[in-house]
Write a protein that binds this DNA or RNA. Sequence first.
DNA 1: TTTTCAAATGCAACAATGTTGCATCAAAAA
DNA 2: TTTTTGATGCAACATTGTTGCATTTGAAAA
Lengths: 139, 139
Amino acid sequence: MMSEDSIKEYLRERALKATPIRVGLLSLLSERESAIPYSEIQENLKSFDRVTLYRTLNALIDGGIVHKASTSGDETYYALCSQKCSKHCHKHEHIHFKCTACHEVSCVHIEQAIKISIPNFQIEEVSVEVKGVCDKCCK
Amino acid sequence: MMSEDSIKEYLRERALKATPIRVGLLSLLSERESAIPYSEIQENLKSFDRVTLYRTLNALIDGGIVHKASTSGDETYYALCSQKCSKHCHKHEHIHFKCTACHEVSCVHIEQAIKISIPNFQIEEVSVEVKGVCDKCCK
DNA sequence: TTTTCAAATGCAACAATGTTGCATCAAAAA
DNA sequence: TTTTTGATGCAACATTGTTGCATTTGAAAA
């Protein structure tokens, strides 16, 4: 959860103008712990043009503020990056977990690094998506 | 690489009629080692209706014969399942590797199982997608 | 505060992707 | 060969995503 002022400051730090749709998108993403599907973002920001929303999402992904999560399903989910990401370095040391019960997608930070090596292959990026039942639904 | 006859037999084993588009799709997928992007499949099978292709892909995925690979990029890739998959159990003990040089997507079988555990979460399925440079392009 | 200007927006038009209903056709079994 | 269930093709539609361009606006300079 971020205040409007801190969102604006955050945007300016990244050389992005603090426009209403950007502030709206970041508010939405920051007040939720889980990643949010595109359709829900669209619903929440439907006062803005659809094209503008696409451009906003791309601009914020480009700026290292937002990332796509769980693209393997039908819908694309979006979530805030940890503040360590930059324009040219989207590093996510977490996995995306999609709960098959509540359908929430969350970014789970894991202790052990995932290391994969394949002979003669040069690994640049590993993304892991896990499906199952989350702690809330396991109760 | 599978013969037309073995493809037909394979389909019937799974209670799927051996129609021309299904045989065509499976021929295409089996004569290639890597996963194939939708656009290329579409191009190869353009004599068939676009709708029929979608239904064919879904039917074969449903039947445990084909799976989607590397959905996180822009395009969906498709590949043959190992013959162990069934209608209700798509188990893939491999990762999807997308080469950033040649853009080929391949299913790489890895020795060590990927085990991920998160406290209080029940894990059902783990999918791993790796980007980097493949052995052919590393030379 | 007002001016300035690059960047962001909204709109129109388009392209690609994916889905549904329905009449017709064909694969596989009787 | 006939039958029948499931697959196909076509039309129409829905969603997702993109591009060009005129207009507006955020933020910095005057």
